[in-house]
Every structure is written in C-alpha cells, then in structure tokens.
C-alpha cells in the first residue's frame, strides 16, 4: 500500500520555540494512527440506526450532543440530529458497518483522511486556545469530556476537552496547515514543544 503523506509532515520539522520567559508551557501534538467516519441516520431512523450499528459492533451512539461517548478505544460525538462522528484506532468495525448496515436505516461515510487531529496540552492550554476560540473553557462550563463544534482562525473545528489541561482539535485536512501556522504563532508567547502521537486509543 502506498505510504500515507501527513499534511503537516513538513511543518512539524520546524520544532518548538521558547516563550517569553524562556520556557515551553505547551505541547502541540499531531495525533496519528486512528480512523474516523460519520455514521448518519435518516429522518425517523435514528433508533433503527442505533440498533443496527450496535448489532454490527459499533459503539453505543450517544444522545448527548455536548459530551463525547467513550467505549473502549472508540469515541463518538453526536454532531446533530442523527449524525455521529466515530473515532477508533482500527477501522475493521467501521468497514463492517459500512458493508452491512441496512441502507434504509442509515449510512457510513469514511472521513479518516478528512481531518487532522491535534492535541494541545499544558497548564496554559485553555488560555492559549482562548486566543482564537470564542467558547467559555472554564471547567464549570466546558468540563472534561465535553466537545463543541466551533471555529478557529475562520475554520470549522471540533474541540474536545480531553483532560484538565488537555484539549483535542479536529481540523479539516485542507485547512490544517493554516490552522497549524495559527496555533504555533499563538503559542509563541507561551513557548511550545511539538510532536506526533501515534499511541493507540488516542
């Protein structure tokens, strides 16, 4: 199989930078080694989709549009009525659902190549993200496990709080370089390290 070409490959070589005080208070990592798809119901088939996809081994589809549902290594966000974004380290189950899902109940669209995922981590992560994201990231409002579809640098992104000082961004692939350039520029005063995470379960 031809080798995958990560769109940030060239940009990650630039390395990190020291901040104003000479330290590096943030880490900006690209996550690799995962699969992503959208699983969708049609009008009135949400329950059927839940049953069928579950029977085929898909994770439980959440009803909450604010919290990520985690099941094993799989993570599912409810993007809207009948629309779910499903991330997993392997795509065997996704492929099975794509093949065998009752076409009257719903559909599955592979999107693994359509998004780039970043992890932003560090005590100043929220303060850093607030340079560009117009969402209240206070833990009482945006707790660990919460996600939101929002905008960063004019680009639609999906933001998830993965830990107290850890956030994940999903960015459309074709915008990823511009968002990365924005992130590294905004991170400059804080200082940052960059890297790639390929650990399963990310």
């Amino acid at each position: 199989m031809p080798e995958a070409h990560p769109v940030l490959a060239r940009h990650l070589q630039a390395g990190g930078r020291d901040g104003v005080d000479g330290t590096r208070a943030l880490t900006l990592h690209e996550l690799r080694g995962w699969h992503l798809c959208q699983i969708s119901a049609f009008a009135g088939t949400d329950d059927a989709l839940r049953l069928h996809s579950r029977a085929l081994g898909a994770p439980e589809l959440p009803r909450d549009s604010r919290r990520v549902a985690a099941e094993g290594d799989a993570r599912v966000c409810r993007l809207g009525a009948g629309r779910y974004l499903w991330t997993a380290p392997a795509d065997a189950v996704m492929q099975r659902v794509a093949r065998e899902l009752d076409p009257a109940a719903g559909s599955l669209t592979p999107l693994s190549a359509a998004r780039v995922r970043f992890m932003v981590e560090g005590p100043a992560a929220a303060q850093f993200l607030q340079r560009g994201i117009a969402l209240d990231l206070h833990p009482a409002v945006f707790a660990v496990g919460h996600f939101a579809q929002t905008g960063l640098h004019h680009v639609p992104v999906l933001l998830e709080r993965r830990g107290e000082a850890r956030y994940e961004l999903q960015v459309p692939t074709t915008w990823a370089v511009s968002v990365w350039e924005w992130l590294t520029d905004a991170a400059l005063p804080f200082g940052y390290d960059i890297g790639v995470d390929t650990a399963p379960g990310l």
């Binding site: 769109v7 370089v177 924005w182």
Partner: peptide, 21 residues
C-alpha cells in the same frame, strides 16, 4: 491583532500541495 500577513486569512491547501511545492 494577528490577522496580518499570512495570518490575515487561512489558506486552503490541496492534499497534493507538498508535491507541488
């Protein structure tokens, strides 16, 4: 703010961009 130069607006790049460069 930072909306100057290359950050004035984001640019959309083809998945083949690096090859073209």
């Amino acid at each position: 703010g930072r909306s100057t130069g290359q950050h004035f607006r984001p640019a959309r790049r083809s998945p083949l961009h690096d090859w073209h460069v």
